[in-house]
Nucleic acid binder design. Structure first.
Lengths: 220, 220
DNA sequence: TGATATGGATGACTGTCAGTCAGTAAATGA
DNA sequence: TCATTTACTGACTGACAGTCATCCATATCA
């Protein structure tokens, strides 16, 4: 193999090593508390080197978002191969999502961060951010596909635009999952503690309501 | 009036002046870009004085959340006085919320910030944060009340726990409103641009689905 | 095998900013 | 008039993200 190739591979490995170190530090202490110096030390590199691989701290954190969203997409892709009705696929996608968040709350935090990130400028020139964007688009496409299948097989009312409906379901689901996530991670909001229902229960109830809401009218 | 009282009033006025300055600076530049020095300058006070009124920058920002949530609650309270069916009240609460966010996107940002804030310690000893918490609880109570009215008057299926249902609706609504908010404020996510529907349209469609989902079964 | 070129890695350094605190001034009250 | 309290000030500190002149290991070639 050529020197070129070897160098390329080494570069990739180092990048992963940096991401591993960042994951350890940031997931343990939180984004604000983790410093670039500590991440560098854990990666056994100097701080300057981190900046050869990532533009800044934001981009490094988004590298973790990229990782997490790829993992989640793998699971989504698998769901879509199942031979089920459209509405069942929608339900399964939602369950996959909430299971993922329960298992990987820290990755979910990176998603929230990425979505709320505001500096357009910085995002556009970042390859990492673009990959995150692609992953979001991919996830969205899975939802659209499941809805289309449901509209075909008659398990979902077909009078709505599937893309718009996907957006609505996606947004609402995000909201519920974030709430469950807050409830589960012992968030300060007391209201959360005072209401019954754990991570999954809340989500199941929500799903019942939505799936009922998008089912075809019974009088048809 | 006593000297005591006058001082008390002056203190309150100064506090408001600081909040005004913070609002101007932070809403214009964003939380990260606005500095305490600039806020102090705009308030025509020294930086040290800001710290006599607010523990730190977070708490100052939460002061804005407190303002915003109080304003929103005033609107919610008014809705609840209307002589309407429960399901209509739920719909009106949602509309009130989305109108508020459209008019005051910057206050909405403070809500998001407060809800995602993580440092339990800091929150507990902050009076400002406690007021925010109270406001959240108040808003939540309005939703519960509307649902209970609906369960009484038969416009909402009464087999669910109204508090749990309120939490679910609240979470999902938050999710949709955040999405609309992102779409409206020109967020980077391209998926948002590619789907039809503005702020209100998305929300209306969502509401149709949910209200259909929580209506009593027609075969009853 | 030694000379030279290349580019990845380094870490001391800089600028910025949140937060502090010793000191000052003004108001109050004896 | 003086003592005491209270409010305010702004220079200073520490922490940290991000930079850049320099170093050094390896590749390349005579």
């Amino acid at each position: 193999m050529s020197t070129q190739e070897r160098k390329q591979r080494e570069k990739q490995q180092r990048r992963e090593a940096i991401l591993d170190a960042a994951e350890n530090e940031i997931f343990a202490k939180g984004l604000d508390q983790a410093t670039m110096d500590e991440i560098a030390e854990r990666a056994e590199l100097s701080k300057g080197t981190l900046y050869l691989y990532f533009r800044n701290k934001n981009e490094l954190y988004m590298g973790l978002c990229e990782r997490g969203s790829s993992l989640l997409n793998q699971r989504f892709a698998k769901v879509l191969t199942a031979d089920r009705s459209g509405i069942e696929l929608v339900r399964m996608l939602g369950e996959t999502y909430i299971d993922f968040v329960r298992e990987n709350p820290d990755y979910f935090r990176t998603f929230l961060y990425y979505e709320s990130f505001d500096d357009e400028e910085e995002l556009e020139q970042s390859e990492v951010a673009c990959n995150c964007e692609d992953n979001v688009r991919e996830a969205f496409t899975y939802t659209v596909r499941a809805l289309q299948i449901g509209m075909q097989d008659g398990t979902i009312d077909d009078s709505r635009d599937p893309r718009q409906l996907a957006l609505i379901i996606w947004g609402a689901t995000r909201g519920i999952i974030k709430l469950s996530f807050m409830k589960e991670t012992g968030h300060h909001l007391q209201v959360l503690e005072e209401v019954e229902g754990d991570f999954k229960t809340l989500y199941d109830r929500f799903q019942d309501i939505v799936l009922r809401g998008i089912a075809p009218s019974s009088e048809k």
